[in-house]
Design a protein around this nucleic acid. Structure first.
Lengths: 231, 231
DNA sequence: CGGGACTTTGAAACTTCTCAAACTAAGTGG
DNA sequence: CCACTTAGTTTGAGAAGTTTCAAAGTCCCG
């Protein structure tokens, strides 16, 4: 359970959402989005929620200085965008497709009706909401860590666990970044240059090794964990 | 509603919790906690939830480098500690009393029973959970802002709005920090020295003025907003 | 009045960011 | 199929800002 604490990409697809999705499926409208398209903007009022069939979506915010910070990276089988349904406030951030996505949506009214007819579903939603909150709290901790190297290490370790479904600790030490490195940098709150330098540093220390455009092999997981010092 | 976006101290006491608390009240157990006492530790399993009648509690985490980061500061009339009830994971952070508090607790089993008998309550909880998530997302944005001055300004503005209940924009420009300044510093993710220097800077620019040990007068709210550039 | 806790100030060290430029990879069009 | 263009990554050097550490100052309470 501590392992799961650090999944890099929200890995919701482990039974939590399935019942929910099954129920919602008949009402879903499907739509394809290209990279860079926005699902919503900061301040928008929510009138629907989203489910990713394939692709990647990021939730980000624009900071005072004009820079951006990515708050979540959502992958397939993720249900999101429903928070404003409950607290009745607009979206507090932007949602942008970063990789061509196949997304299902359901409008608020329909959703409310379904929930009303199936009150037990709210518990599932609560679970998802809790998971989001937990992730956000972890992110707050991580991003406040001044040392960028441990942030990078954390990120790598959590990609490793995400790939292994956060549960099985198998022997496949190959990890793959599904996003360009500037997106990853943004997610962990550093500049691309800083990320690059830290990756280089870890490579020189033979802790990781670049084996492809966006893939790395973890040579020394224990030391990587040590540096990230979360596990 | 944008105004509310930035309440410094979670100001839950506006009707959201009242119904809930009324129902839970008969089952509450009351307890007084002194400053520095812990309600729970990171990794603890949750067996009860908490309601603050008076006092202040902070939720914080310990970072890799040994420093700490405060994630939430909860005041009276706040219900918290229930997130692990839903996602079945342990607490992801610590809860420490920072100011002598009068706290009611309710155990998990009792709570579950009440929820089961009153399913409409889960919607209220969802609302609180959403609010927490929203606050967390805002905090992620703010803490990633490299410029510490704007973080300090943000903090001051949001204390201002919190004091004014986040709704009424009255003429009382006096704000009071309810915590020692090192706690405030920790909350916004800077050192006490940096906070002090920024406060000094704002004072020199006649944007705020110290009028008491922990109280300030906002002389130029517009400029303070400008610097925080959130509103 | 004295002690302890907290805050402010100063100076130096450190790290990241910024900016610029070289480099690489990939995709496009001739 | 190659040259060209563009997007993205890496490298370097310098600037900027916060942190760190140390010390002085302030405030409150016994």
């Amino acid at each position: 359970m501590i392992i799961e604490k650090k999944c890099f990409i929200d890995n919701q697809n482990r039974g939590i959402t399935t019942d929910l999705i099954k129920l919602l499926a008949p009402y879903f409208k499907h739509h394809k989005y290209k990279a860079k398209e926005h699902l919503w903007y900061d301040g928008d009022n929510a009138n629907k929620m989203f489910f990713i069939n394939s692709g990647i979506v990021k939730i980000y915010d624009i900071l005072e200085d004009g820079n951006t910070i990515t708050i979540y990276i959502f992958e397939k089988n993720t249900l999101f965008g429903f928070m404003p349904f409950f607290d009745e406030e607009p979206y507090p951030a932007y949602a942008e497709v970063v990789k061509e996505s196949d997304i299902s949506t359901i409008d608020r009214a329909t959703f409310n009706k379904i929930i009303k007819e199936n009150p037990e579903l709210s518990l599932k939603l609560m679970k998802i909401l809790s998971k989001r909150l937990r992730d956000a709290m972890i992110k707050i901790s991580e991003n406040n860590n001044k040392d960028t190297l441990s942030r990078v290490a954390s990120m790598l370790v959590s990609i490793y666990f995400t790939h292994n479904n956060c549960y099985t600790e198998n022997q496949n030490y190959t990890i793959e970044m599904k996003l360009p490195s500037y997106e990853i940098a943004n997610y962990i709150g550093v500049t691309p240059e800083t990320l690059s330098r830290n990756i280089k540093h870890l490579s020189e220390k033979k802790i990781i090794e670049k084996i492809g455009k966006r893939s790395y092999k973890i040579l020394d997981l224990e030391q990587l964990k040590e540096i990230s010092s979360i596990y």
